[in-house]
Write a protein that binds this DNA or RNA. Sequence first.
DNA 1: CTTGACCTTCCAGTAACGGGAAGGTTCATA
DNA 2: TATGAACCTTCCCGTTACTGGAAGGTCAAG
Lengths: 129, 129
Amino acid sequence: MNIGEASGRSGLPAKTIRYYEDIGLIRPDRSGNGYRDYSDDDVHKLRFLHRSRGLGFSVDECRQLLALYEDKSRASADVKDIASSKLTEIDRKIRELTELRHTLEHLVHACHGNERPDCPILEELSEHT
Amino acid sequence: MNIGEASGRSGLPAKTIRYYEDIGLIRPDRSGNGYRDYSDDDVHKLRFLHRSRGLGFSVDECRQLLALYEDKSRASADVKDIASSKLTEIDRKIRELTELRHTLEHLVHACHGNERPDCPILEELSEHT
DNA sequence: CTTGACCTTCCAGTAACGGGAAGGTTCATA
DNA sequence: TATGAACCTTCCCGTTACTGGAAGGTCAAG
């Protein structure tokens, strides 16, 4: 199938699919007219990529996961390691964002938001060392 | 003062300070030898930038905040708007990450992580439509 | 035969810097 | 006075994961 259909079936934009080919994630066949020709297996991989990217894995981590997926002899522990460290990373991001949220919320509530120029938000941004 | 001291006082790397100059956020003087020469006010702005970047504002939002900060006639409501929409954005990010966290945690717990090749994580990534 | 929807490659830009090269300046010290 | 370290300068490339657009080839329908 052409890239348009592969795009529709995988949910990835055609541009992204070409990019994934550029960086060596997939290698579709070519038809006689030079068009890329995707197999069902290719689409399967594209969906795998779409889903793992959506779960926050970097493209490089996706590459590792895809390699593990295709390696029938790999241990599940290898995959679990990648997922676990990603989980730790997500936890850290959530903690940071939550902290940031508290600070910002405090500032937004402190600001009366009227026509007058005095603003606790800017004062805080300005004075804090 | 030279960029090194401005860096030390603001907490921003010299590279970042030069970058902020490139994109027009600050305009320090130049000494006779061609070195950048930062005033206390410049350092004040740099600290402002450091802090607002740390609060998750984009460089462009920082530019707006800095402009508002320097505009003595601005209404505090203008500032509050920017901060509020940033707050909404942070909330969304936290929600997304939390959801993602649940999915990943579920997968990690489902995976026994041993030497055997069967792995629920990869199965999920592969099968999910 | 033409029109429009596909497809191709290539080039450039995004955000926000970081690394490093090649070279000038300043200051303390031997 | 020389020299070496520690500054500073500009410039260019690399990063991440794409997205947009231009110029042009292909294909099916009317």
